[in-house]
């Protein structure tokens, strides 16, 4: 996966800013995507390109169980969120529906990666290459079961 970075230097980016409540009535995923990150960044929709990554701090996706949050990011083109840590329901929703990869990075990678950097993420090697800065970062491997669900393409395709 190759793409460029949209970085938010913030902890606790919650589901209400990822996809604000009033849009939970929308059923069309493409339309949902036009409101992604609207609570934090009104220009996100104009800026995001297919294959982009979000980089953020701790406890990304805290709050509501709305699956609309990872759906809106996914249909905006976001392939993975690289964060210091995730809230559990967001993490689970992202994996279950195969919407995007919730990837945990460490402090040094978080500090080093800048907005607009070009990255290549390889989950088979558990590493990220920063093509702009010519650096390599390790990512926290997915637990075995989660890795298998991701490989299968979500909860419904996963066969134990």
């Amino acid at each position: 996966m190759k793409g460029s970075v949209i970085k938010y230097e913030r902890d606790n980016i919650d589901t209400d800013v990822i996809l604000p409540g009033p849009y939970l009535k929308i059923h069309d995923y493409a339309e949902l995507a036009t409101h992604a990150m609207e609570g934090l960044d009104k220009d996100f929709h104009k800026r995001v390109k297919p294959g982009d990554f979000i980089v953020a701090g701790k406890n990304f996706g805290c709050g509501s169980s709305r699956e609309h949050a990872p759906i809106a990011l996914s249909y905006s083109g976001i392939k993975a969120v690289l964060a210091l840590s995730f809230a559990r329901i967001f993490y689970r929703n992202a994996v279950d529906g195969a919407f995007l990869l919730p990837i945990e990075i460490d402090e040094s990678a978080y500090k080093d990666i800048s907005d607009s950097d070009s990255l290549e993420v390889d989950i088979s090697k558990n590493e990220i290459q920063n093509l702009t800065k010519n650096k390599v970062y390790k990512i926290k491997p997915f637990p075995e079961l989660i890795g298998k669900i991701i490989e299968a393409g979500g909860l419904f395709n996963y066969k134990p």
């Binding site: 709050g63 509501s64 169980s65 699956e67 929703n93 279950d96 529906g97 909860l155 419904f156």
Partner: peptide, 26 residues
Amino acid sequence: CGDSHTSTHGAFGALAFGIGTSDVEH
């Protein structure tokens, strides 16, 4: 329940958690 505040029901000694829509379907 497809709602994060399902934790409320724990007050009765029930194990209760919020889930997303894929899990609701499951």
